[in-house]
Design a binder for these strands. Structure first.
Lengths: 219, 219
DNA sequence: CTCAACAAAATTGTCAACAATTTTGATTAT
DNA sequence: ATAATCAAAATTGTTGACAATTTTGTTGAG
């Protein structure tokens, strides 16, 4: 299906995906200088391609460029992470509403299964898996909503703030209240109640937001 | 201050701004094919610059590119315009909350003056100026909020959907109710009541959204 | 006349060399 | 030792030519 050119050269889209992933998963550190020729070699793409990809990543907010001074992985400040989380809250509230409007029985069953997984993780204090299931639940809601515009923006916002997500998870302190909040969301969606779903999501992310806000920027 | 190269060649940022403006203000029509060499001549920029700019505009959602088939001005469908408006509603509700939290007395005075302008426009049935003041009010709220992340996203969303704005304005039918809704927003901000400001903005944009939804896609 | 095949033209993607600018490192004066 | 100066190196921006692909237009068969 994917028309991979037999030559080792990466197409622009592949190069974009790889570089983006390297930034998001932390292979490339914030503030790290991205030298074009290094990327040409490590990515096996032409320099023109690399330049184009860097411009796209700048537009996406993952990279900063300065004329004649090259590109760097963008450093997201604590204050900005809070802003991003606030916007996410607004968008995910919309998503929850749409999910409640369009949920099939299979969708609801899937949500409840993820929630049950989260409960088990919380029981055995497995925060890593809990957090992964948390993300899974949110992704499932996004898929259910079918709101393409909100989905695209959320994807970008998440990629910018992944570095701050583990903090809120670790610092959340009371995973039992997090679990309760997620149950409220799933119940509202299961009841096909858009208003309740939106409200529950808003309450949940307001708490996450408050948690992140209370973490000292210095740490 | 701005280091304008004495040569006639446009820098990437200038080229980006000019091309973006041409798309947003309708000089370049939706679906219009953007041939690189033509842009090189009309923009007086190098081809590499033009290519980079097109990639940025694609990331921003104003342009579509296909390998070996070039770039086109992206066509925003009616359904997508509704989605964009819904996301705008969510973000502007957040903006209204922030504006209410950070409003100075001068800010409130400015808002009330714009509102008064809108009233006068509505009185003499000047829909064009009314719509311009409408936009001015929203921009003022955005500036007051000081929420950089929401501001950036709103700017992008607005640029994508300008083509659909005149429709909602013309079709709104009852400018008097629009004026009332805006007054609610300004009053809430003047009272420094974030919850009320957010709610008022939500109600207002829900009505705009409903109006746009009811316009037949065919027209 | 319609359709398929094919060549010509137009357009986009890639590459290598060069120009412009910044960064680095050594040198010298204080 | 420290700071200023300047050349060398590194890096980015630009240009033009060429390769790959699509688009267009023509020709011929049915």
């Amino acid at each position: 299906m994917s028309t991979m050119p037999q030559t080792g050269l990466l197409t622009e889209e592949e190069c974009y995906q790889r570089l983006r992933k390297a930034i998001v998963d932390g292979t490339l550190m914030p503030n790290q200088h991205l030298v074009e020729m290094d990327l040409v070699k490590s990515m096996n793409a032409s320099r023109a391609t690399v330049r184009t990809v860097l411009a796209r990543l700048e537009q996406e907010g993952l990279v900063e460029r300065e004329r004649y001074r090259g590109a760097r992985v963008r450093m997201v400040t604590h204050a900005e992470a809070v802003e991003i989380l606030e916007v996410r809250a607004a968008l995910e509230a919309l998503i929850a509403r749409y999910a409640a409007m369009h949920a099939t029985d299979a969708d609801v069953a899937a949500l409840q299964e993820i929630l049950e997984d989260m409960r088990r993780c919380q029981e055995r204090n497995d925060l890593i898996s809990y957090s992964e299931n948390n993300a899974r639940l949110h992704r499932k809601l996004v898929a259910m909503a079918g709101h393409h515009t909100a989905e695209r923006l959320l994807d970008t916002l998440n990629s910018q703030s992944v570095r701050y997500q583990y903090r809120t998870i670790m610092a959340q302190g009371r995973p039992e209240s997090s679990l309760r909040e997620h149950r409220e969301i799933v119940d509202a969606v299961a009841a096909r109640n858009p208003d309740a779903a939106e409200a529950a999501m808003k309450i949940h992310l307001a708490h996450v937001c408050e948690t992140l806000r209370q973490i000292k920027p210095g740490v």
